[in-house]
Design a protein around this nucleic acid. Structure first.
Length: 118
DNA sequence: GCAATGACGCTCT
DNA sequence: CAGAGCGCCATTG
C-alpha cells in the first residue's frame, strides 16, 4: 500500500520484532530486566528502547507479549504505583512470582539467574 | 539532521 | 538506602 506511515504493527516487524521475541522467550513464572531483554534482542544498552517498544505495545495490547515479565534492573516495577504497575504485579503474582518490599525477588525468579525454587 | 523524550542502567555522593 | 548525574539506544517533532 502506498504512502503508509509505519504503524505499530509495521514496527513490530522491524526493530521491535527482536524485542518482542525476546520478551516472549521469558518463561512463565520468571522475570527479565529491560537490559536483559535488550541484550537478548541484540541491542546491548538499549534498555530504554525496550521500554519504548513495550509502551507502544500497551497502546495496542493485542499482542501475545508477556510485557508484565519485564521489570527494572533490581526487580522494580518501572510503572510505579500506577494502574499498569498494579496490573503487572497481579499478573506476576498469578504466575507465582513473589515480591519483597514492592520488588520482585530476582534471586529466585530472575530469568536465568538463580536458584532452586522454594 | 538536531533537540527532546522515555515502562532504563550504573556510579557517585 | 535515597537522590542526582551521566551514558546508552531508538522514536518523534
Amino acid at each position: 500500500m502506498p504512502s503508509k506511515r509505519p504503524t505499530i504493527d509495521e514496527q513490530c516487524e522491524g526493530t521491535y520484532a527482536a524485542i518482542y521475541r525476546a520478551v516472549r522467550s521469558i518463561p512463565r513464572g520468571r522475570v527479565a530486566t529491560y537490559g536483559q531483554v535488550a541484550l537478548l534482542a541484540g541491542m546491548p544498552g538499549a534498555a530504554r528502547t525496550v521500554g519504548w517498544a513495550l509502551r507502544a505495545l500497551a497502546e495496542k495490547s493485542h499482542r501475545r507479549v508477556p510485557w508484565h515479565r519485564v521489570v527494572g534492573a533490581r526487580g522494580v516495577i518501572s510503572l510505579g504505583d500506577g494502574p499498569s504497575g498494579q496490573l503487572q504485579r497481579a499478573l506476576l503474582r498469578a504466575e507465582g512470582v513473589r515480591f519483597r518490599d514492592g520488588r520482585v525477588v530476582m534471586d529466585s525468579f530472575g530469568w536465568r539467574r538463580a536458584a532452586p525454587m522454594p
